[in-house]
Design a protein around this nucleic acid. Sequence first.
DNA 1: GTTTTTGCAAAGTATTTGCAAATGG
DNA 2: CCATTTGCAAATACTTTGCAAAAAC
Lengths: 135, 135
Amino acid sequence: MQALKYSRQREAIKELLITRKDHPTADMIYTELRRTQPNISLGTVYRNLALLAELGEIKKFSAGDGVDRYEADLTPHSHFVCRECGAVLDMKLDHQTKIRHLAEKNFEGIIEDCSVNFYGICPACKQKSKKQKSS
Amino acid sequence: MQALKYSRQREAIKELLITRKDHPTADMIYTELRRTQPNISLGTVYRNLALLAELGEIKKFSAGDGVDRYEADLTPHSHFVCRECGAVLDMKLDHQTKIRHLAEKNFEGIIEDCSVNFYGICPACKQKSKKQKSS
DNA sequence: GTTTTTGCAAAGTATTTGCAAATGG
DNA sequence: CCATTTGCAAATACTTTGCAAAAAC
């Protein structure tokens, strides 16, 4: 049981996540895939995202707004969320490893994962507001 | 305009968050307040939580499951989420300040906030599974 | 009296699920 | 063939919102 058969849809989802470096939601993935596979359903997208995440092939995370986001980059890194435009950017500094060790010292439980989110204004929006002021 | 009048409901929500040290969801707050104010509505709870968060009197955050959580503790700290029992615990180490400075060095945007979540097995659940093994 | 807040119910999102048909091995 | 996956639609979970009545000032 649970033999995991090939699925065109699942491959397409994985491929899309490897290609795209933004951090799409299930709905964004669905909309994009619809262009090449007009019959794919949102339920299938959700089911495969959950499966891939469970297999550890992709990572599901939250940007703090109510929507789940997905990425194929499994290396430890954190995210920046722009409260102006909503963009989610990678922050390549690897804090996690260091923080995790710090946290483990004072904690009796088991720490398996760590997520770090930054919030603020992204470089692009910062530029934009500068120009508006000077005009 | 926007003069902010007193509201018994809002005070009760704030008081509850100051008292309770778990990190309740809107629905948990609603259920609890219903015991003393049987007519309070879920919409009112949501509206006041949003208002209090906007005023900076409480903090809204995500534990990674789809539900928003609230707390009155405004000092920088992070959270641990048990993937066994769902408990959300405070991690009192202040990583945020340090991490923020690290992140700001390599980032052209503006960092206003930072959230750190740990995931794993909480001390209580760890104990429980130990006992099960030895029986 | 005017403005803000409330309770209620309805609407709006995001996600999950049941099921018969399609697909993979 | 049998097990898994799909598309579709309905169900669920969480949050927001419109509106008339109630409360605050």
